[in-house]
């Protein structure tokens, strides 16, 4: 999702868009579906194991990585709840490199690191208009354990991705929109990637 909405605090300019928008479905169990699912699992493992170089290698240099805020709405606008004017993450490839670079130095928020488990489910895949690009929608369930606190912090979200096939096999992430479910996040910071 690039910068499409004009900056505004008035919420009704926001779009409803969620889920899979592609009409050309890549069926569950097909070769491409399986390989993309495997890619999502590999990505989750790289992030859970804090192998940031491996994760960066899975990102495309034209990456758009955003997490719009979510709001509680009523009436005619009850489903217009994804605010694409304000974000929890608003990043590109360069800023992600800045973030991962920081994580290798003095980023106290992740030093000591939290122990994360990313559960990726409900994966649906469609073909994009551009050849070799796939829209991949998944559910994310993140459990995050920090310090000696026996209670994990949790976060659920829908991720609307575009993965692009690259020469030599495999896919890179070109776009990710993370639609969190909480209007008020219960996680005390987002020092981890979603």
């Amino acid at each position: 999702m690039t910068w499409v909405t004009k900056s505004t605090a008035a919420p009704d300019s926001t779009t409803i868009l969620r889920g899979l928008s592609s009409r050309k479905r890549v069926p569950l169990g097909s070769e491409i579906y399986n390989r993309l699912l495997e890619t999502l699992y590999d990505e989750a493992a790289a992030l859970d194991e804090r192998r940031f170089d491996d994760w960066i290698a899975m990102l495309s240099p034209d990456l758009v990585y955003q997490a719009p805020i979510r709001m509680t709405r009523t009436g005619a606008n009850r489903d217009r709840d994804v605010m694409r004017t304000m974000f929890h993450f608003d990043d590109d490839y360069t800023s992600i490199l800045m973030r991962t670079g920081r994580l290798q130095k003095s980023a106290w928020a992740e030093d000591p690191p939290s122990r994360c488990r990313r559960f990726i489910t409900n994966v649906r895949v469609g073909e994009c208009d551009a050849a070799g690009e796939y829209e991949v929608v998944s559910y994310l369930y993140l459990e995050r354990s920090r310090g000696d606190n026996p209670h994990n912090e949790q976060l659920t979200a829908e991720r609307r991705d575009v993965w692009r096939a690259v020469d030599g096999g495999g896919y890179v992430l070109a776009k990710r929109e993370i639609i969190v479910d909480q209007s008020v996040l219960g996680m005390s910071n987002l020092a981890v990637f979603l």
């Binding site: 900056s7 974000f87 993450f89 608003d90 990043d91 928020a109 910071n189």
Partner: peptide
Amino acid sequence: KRDMLQNSVQQTGTSGTIEQDDADV
């Protein structure tokens, strides 16, 4: 405005690289 939004989100608040650390302390 676009640049300022990005700067602010990347430095302050939920995922801000400055304030992540405050929220940890």
